[in-house]
C-alpha cells in the first residue's frame, strides 16, 4: 500500500438486535487500491458496507476516512464525503428515467459542469444506457440495471466506491461486461471495496482480499497469492 489509508475499519462489531453480525473486523483500503471482501452468505460482508455507509451504527469500533472518524454519521453525510455505495440488488429508481437516475448520482456535487462530464464518462463506459436515457429505469433488464447502478454511483465522482455483489443474479456474459467495466475503473485509479460471492471474478480484479466467515476475518492476503490457492478459498466459501 502506498500512502495513508483512504478507509480504515478498526475492530468493528455490529449487530441486528441480539444477533451479532460482525465480531471485531479491521481492514484498510489504500488510495487506488481494489480490495475484495469475500465470504459465504451471512458472513457479514453487506453488514460491513452498511456500517461504512452509516446505514447501521456499529456496537463498537471505528470507521476512519482519510484519518478522520466518521463512525455513526448519517448516510447522506457519508455519501457527501465521496464514499459512494452501489447497494446490493441494484436499488435503482425504477419509476425515474435512466437519465434522472444518473443525474441524481451527481447529487452530492452540485456542479453542472462536472455533472455533464461525468454523464459523458458514464455513458462511454456503458454505451447501451445512451439509447435508453429517457426510458423508465424499471424497464431495463437485470444486467442493464446493474450497469445503471454502477454508472449512477460513478456520477458522484466517488473517492471510494463500495460495490455490493455486482454480479448477483446476472448472466455469465453480463458478469464479464460488468467486471470489464470495473477493470477500466481500476485502471483509472478508482479506489474500490468489492463485496462478492463470486470469488474467482473478484480476485481477478482485486489487489488484496479479505475473507470473512460468520462475522470474523479468517484470511487476508494479496489477491494473486489467493488466486494460487483456490482450495483454500473453496474451503472458506464452501464450494
Amino acid at each position: 500500500m502506498d500512502g495513508p489509508a483512504v478507509l480504515e475499519l478498526r475492530n468493528l462489531e455490529a449487530a441486528y438486535g441480539a444477533i451479532r453480525a460482525l465480531h471485531g473486523l479491521s481492514l484498510t483500503l489504500g488510495p487506488g487500491e481494489v480490495v475484495a471482501l469475500l465470504g459465504p452468505n451471512g458472513a457479514g460482508k453487506t453488514t460491513t458496507l452498511r456500517v461504512i455507509s452509516g446505514l447501521l451504527r456499529p456496537v463498537r469500533g471505528q470507521v476512519l476516512y482519510r484519518g478522520d472518524e466518521i463512525t455513526g454519521r448519517p448516510p447522506a453525510t457519508i455519501a457527501r464525503l465521496g464514499i459512494i455505495q452501489c447497494p446490493e440488488g441494484r436499488q435503482i429508481f425504477k419509476n425515474l428515467t435512466v437519465r434522472e437516475n444518473l443525474i441524481l448520482g451527481g447529487y452530492r456535487l452540485r456542479d453542472p459542469a462536472r455533472e455533464r462530464r461525468n454523464l459523458e464518462r458514464a455513458l462511454d463506459l456503458f454505451p447501451m444506457l445512451k439509447e435508453r436515457l429517457h426510458h423508465p429505469a424499471g424497464l431495463l433488464s437485470g444486467g442493464q440495471q446493474q450497469m445503471l447502478a454502477i454508472a449512477r454511483a460513478l456520477m458522484a465522482d466517488p473517492e471510494v466506491l463500495l460495490l455490493d455483489e455486482p454480479s448477483l443474479g446476472l448472466a455469465p456474459r453480463v458478469v464479464e461486461e460488468v467486471f470489464e467495466a470495473l477493470a477500466q475503473l481500476k485502471a483509472q485509479g478508482l479506489t474500490m471495496l468489492i463485496v462478492e460471492q463470486n470469488a474467482e471474478k473478484a480476485l481477478e480484479i482485486a489487489d488484496r482480499a479479505y475473507v470473512l466467515e460468520a462475522g470474523r476475518l479468517v484470511l487476508a492476503d494479496a489477491a494473486h497469492r489467493l488466486r494460487e490457492k483456490p482450495d483454500l478459498i473453496r474451503i472458506y466459501l464452501g464450494r
Binding site: 446505514l55 448516510p75 455519501a79 436499488q91 429508481f93 419509476n95 434522472e100 449512477r152
Partner: peptide, 25 residues
C-alpha cells in the same frame, strides 16, 4: 422532473435507502 431537489424528492419517495446513499437528506 427538472430540478435536482424535485428529482431527489421522487427518489426518496421510491427508495429512501438508495437516495441516502447518494447524499440525499
Amino acid at each position: 422532473t427538472r430540478t435536482r431537489l424535485g428529482l431527489a424528492m421522487r427518489a426518496a419517495a421510491e427508495n429512501p435507502t438508495a437516495a441516502q446513499l447518494l447524499g440525499i437528506e
